[in-house]
């Protein structure tokens, strides 16, 4: 059995082939991204220049506050209702 056969049997050649393909893809994607020369901040990934990002973040923070408040109100209401039922019995 030759060295190549041993490597093939262990799957190392297949692994190296796949990893090379993966790394090539990563390099090509990144290279393409970096050499883009558009003026559109969206294309460049300059999200700090886009208002939509800021407004969406504030909206989500408010949404979180709303969900938490609703939960607290619900828990309080259920506890009060349970206490009232126990008190009535």
């Amino acid at each position: 059995m030759t060295k190549v056969d041993i490597l093939r049997k262990l799957g190392i050649i297949q692994f190296v082939k796949r990893m090379t393909a993966f790394l090539t893809c990563v390099y090509l994607c990144c290279a393409a991204g970096a050499v883009q020369g558009h003026d559109d901040p969206r294309e460049l990934g300059h999200h700090w220049r886009i208002d939509e990002y800021r407004s969406e973040m504030w909206f989500q923070i408010l949404l979180i506050a709303l969900v938490v408040s609703l939960y607290i109100i619900c828990v309080f209401a259920v506890r009060t209702w349970k206490r009232w039922i126990v008190h009535r019995r």
Binding site: A34, L44, G45, H46, H47, W48, Y53, R54, E56, M57, F59, Q60, L63
Partner: peptide
């Protein structure tokens, strides 16, 4: 959409690559 995390805003790769400054408030 509104419950999904906005993960794009944590990506400052473009600023690092192009040497742009990002507002501190942002």
């Amino acid at each position: 959409y509104h419950f999904l995390p906005n993960l794009e805003c944590f990506n400052l790769k473009a600023a690092l690559v192009h040497g742009d400054s990002v507002p501190t408030a942002y």
